[in-house]
Design a protein around this nucleic acid. Structure first.
Lengths: 107, 107
DNA sequence: GATCTATTTCGCAAGAGTGCGAAATAGGCG
DNA sequence: CGCCTATTTCGCACTCTTGCGAAATAGATC
């Protein structure tokens, strides 16, 4: 967080935040927080077309937020950046005005 | 993070992430991480026009990421959501492949 | 109260992101 | 090998975001 943060690091951070800045992609992350899912399950959960969900996933993957693995006919996605999930919990608490115990914020 | 996350909570989270999804706004946050700053200082640091920086700040403020206070002729901005700063540190570490000690992630 | 200064709001043109159906791809399977 | 299934890529129309200069606003100051 020093003033020496390079442009590249900042660009990487921004890519992650852009990837997270869409409600349907957050919905996907909620699903994945409960365990890995195949694309077909996510399509059902999000309620958009296959092509749209697939693009959402590719954006999350390019940002490094999720990872995928092909097994048999299906592709399974899982969260690759667990601190994202705890950060959202932290966000919600702050929004509610709760003074978050920082030790417990990112677990 | 349960499946009972409401649409509203998800929308609030998305608003925060959208606000953070821009390199110049991340630059602003880096400046603010070192202490409060007036708009004039941020304009200098970011290198865009006053109107552009002002809009960046209003986006961050609407999302609850920063807060402002008018003192004398100037408006001072400061970070209102400290866990954002520690989350970025966490992100950087994950990106470098470092196994982050989650206890120390959000401090 | 006129003026000056710091900041925000407005309106527009350009660019980026979104969602969809159709077409393409990649393996597993008979 | 040819087919079927799960998923990704493409192309397009559409909406949202961005950045700027000009105009508006809000106080402090004279």
């Amino acid at each position: 967080m020093t003033s020496r943060t390079t442009r590249q690091v900042r660009a990487q951070r921004a890519e992650v935040f852009k990837a997270l800045g869409h409600e349907d992609r957050l919905r996907i992350l909620e699903d994945l927080a409960a365990g890995e899912r195949c694309v077909c399950e996510l399509v059902e959960s999000v309620g958009s077309s296959w092509s749209t969900v697939s693009r959402h996933l590719s954006i999350l993957k390019a940002a490094g937020v999720v990872a995928d693995e092909k097994r048999g006919l299906q592709v399974f996605y899982r969260i690759a950046l667990p601190c994202v999930v705890s950060f959202m919990t932290c966000l919600d608490a702050s929004r509610r005005g709760e003074a978050v115990e920082v030790r417990r914020c990112c677990a």
